[in-house]
Amino acid sequence: MTLAGFGAMVRHEFLLEFRHRFASAALLVYVIAVAFIIYLSFASPEPAVWNALFWMVILFSGLQSGTMAFLREFGDAHLFYYQYVHPLSLFLAKILSVWLKLFMLALLAWFVMGVVLGNPIVDVGMFFLAVLLGSLGFAVVFTFLSAVALNANNSGLLLAVLGFPVLLPVLLSVMRLSLVSMAVRDVDATESFLMLVAVVMLLIGLGLILFPYLWKN
């Protein structure tokens, strides 16, 4: 199986991202604004609260980026993809772009929240890893479900309804790992890490198997 058009799709994704750069800029402003609102309402939260708030910020940015993954282009573009691009290369390119965007947003959120709220992270490397894997998991779930919701009316709202319960395994395991990186809870780091990796791998595997069935007309 060849991933026909994967490179072209990735380039196309980044062009698209550039064309819609104001949408991404809006997300940046959203992250900064939310971090500031948290600062105004919490002043200096406990590490566990910091962690929860951080992942909530990422969750909603992920929802927004997921919505943009498929729902910002309409009929013609999709017809074009159906004809010329292998479904998996389309899926992987979308995941890659959403992942990169989410990862950068997460780093930004970390930076802004670290500046205004203080940085509770002890093990920086582990938290970095948690952010990297967590944003990948979020990207897979939201990209996949964005393609599901595409078929229904009122898909923006539907994505949230479909997404949150499915996202919970990723959310719980990534929050566990980042709590470990803050040295607040005495949990086995390796176990939490493997759990997160397993959940993300499972989601990617499911996405790769099921996406071709979804992308068929």
């Binding site: 779930v141 996949f144 479900l145 599901v148 499915v166 395994p169 395991s173 759990m195 499972l202 499911l206």
Partner: peptide, 8 residues
């Protein structure tokens, strides 16, 4: 997708 993802 939902069933298998909810196994963990």
């Amino acid at each position: 997708f939902a069933f298998l993802a909810s196994i963990p």
